[in-house]
């Protein structure tokens, strides 16, 4: 069966007809023609198909297209500015060698974006958790983690802890 759905695609309102058995990944790649989102395993293991639905990272290969009705969808194509200027996360991946073959990059970047949108000061443990569902077979992850750290504000600004000895006139922070 088919049905009409309306949703926001990278900021634009879209109404179209989808088949019930289509996955969101099929809709994005085969019907809309946006091939930035990759299909890796097709079973939710690799994260190459990660997109953001209503602010949350999801595997588009395990999400029915019909379920996107009324929601907001962001794919990797929605990140760069209209003039081609890269999103800061994309820029950081380029600058820090977070991209090698590039197949996992769209998924990695979408996972990173969902994390940083929610917590702009994500520290390493949070970054590791956020990309735990994204496999990369090239980089060994180090450069990817460095890339995301470069955009994250790091630890949130809190009260500073000052180490101070009574006989030291210059307390070090």
């Amino acid at each position: 069966m088919s049905r009409d759905i309306t949703f926001t695609f990278n900021g634009n309102l879209l109404t179209l007809t989808v088949e019930d058995h289509w996955t969101l990944l099929h809709l994005i790649r085969e019907e809309l023609g946006y091939t930035g989102t990759k299909e890796g395993c097709g079973s939710g293991e690799c994260g190459a198909c990660t997109v953001i639905v209503d602010g949350a990272a999801v595997n588009s290969c395990l999400y029915l297209a019909a379920e996107i009705n009324g929601r907001s969808l962001v794919t990797i194509e929605g990140l760069a500015a209209a003039d081609g200027t890269l999103h800061p996360i994309q820029r950081a991946f380029v600058d820090h060698g977070g991209i090698q073959c590039g197949f996992c990059s769209p998924g990695m970047i979408m996972s990173a974006k969902a994390l940083l949108d929610e917590n702009s000061h994500a520290a390493e443990p949070e970054i590791l958790e956020a990309i735990a569902g994204n496999l990369c077979r090239c980089t060994g992850y180090v450069q990817i983690i460095e890339s995301i750290k470069a955009v994250s504000g790091g630890e949130p600004e809190g009260p500073r802890v000052v180490a101070w000895r009574g006989d030291d006139p210059h307390p070090r922070s």
């Binding site: 990272a57 999801v58 595997n59 999400y63 969902a114 735990a132 569902g133 994204n134």
Partner: peptide
């Protein structure tokens, strides 16, 4: 359980 992507749905 799983990953963030899995736990979200």
């Amino acid at each position: 359980i799983g990953s963030v992507q899995i736990r979200n749905v």
